[in-house]
Computed example of a mutant assay.
Amino acid sequence: MSSADLSGNVEQAKSVMASAAVEPAACRELALSGSAPSVEGATAAMGTSLDAAAGASTAIALTSGLDPAFLRKGLAQSAELSKCANMSLTMSGVKVAVTITRLNGIGSVPGAVAYRTDTALPNGGHQSMITAQAVKRGVLITVLGAGGASEADASSRAAKLMDSAAALVK
């Protein structure tokens, strides 16, 4: 994805998230931290794998050219995950409860951060997702795993994808 395409998508996501109310308010920055302040000059590659039979999905994004200060800050914020373990997001009048649990052992990339996000949906449904991030040689690697046989299954898929991607970053 080119820098121009990436910029347009990021600006749209930022606009949507800027209107979100986050409680506790101290968690707002963490909740919005996935958006880089500038993606000018950045390049991203993304992919997904869907297994309809297993009800599993796995996704990856590799982004290069981001501001190194943003990369350091993003991974440093992982220490704040426990402070914001329980929060709510309200967007367009719809409120959802979000629980974040830090996970260990997702992949073997040094400095990787992983967590499970559980979202209670307004219709009574529940959604869980495993997220892992690492930076290798200035490339931000983000993997997501959801669905499948179990949380362990989603974690395993995310870990394998993280390690495979990191091995290819030279």
Rank of each mutant, 00 (worst) to 15 (best):
L66I: 04
A97N: 14
S35G: 05
T90Y: 15
K95H: 05
S92R: 15
A42F: 09
R102A: 14
A36C: 01
M46H: 08
A69T: 15
S92Q: 15
G34W: 09
L81A: 07
K73F: 13
S64Q: 15
V94N: 02
Q77E: 07
S38H: 01
I60Y: 12
I100R: 10
L71H: 12
K95V: 03
T99W: 08
R102Q: 11
N104T: 15
A44N: 05
R102W: 03
R28E: 15
S82D: 14
L66T: 05
G47H: 09
M46T: 07
R72Q: 14
A31H: 04
L71V: 08
A85L: 03
E29R: 10
G55A: 05
P68I: 03
A61M: 14
T58Y: 00
T48I: 03
A61V: 13
I100V: 15
P24W: 15
R102E: 13
I60Q: 04
Q77R: 14
I106P: 02
A45R: 12
Q77N: 08
T99L: 07
L30W: 08
T63D: 00
P68F: 11
D51E: 13
E23M: 10
P68H: 01
L50D: 14
I100A: 12
S82I: 03
M46V: 01
D51Y: 11
P24L: 12
N86M: 14
G41L: 10
G105D: 08
I60C: 08
A85V: 02
V109T: 08
P68S: 08
G105L: 13
T48Y: 08
S35T: 11
V98I: 13
V98Y: 01
S57R: 13
A45H: 07
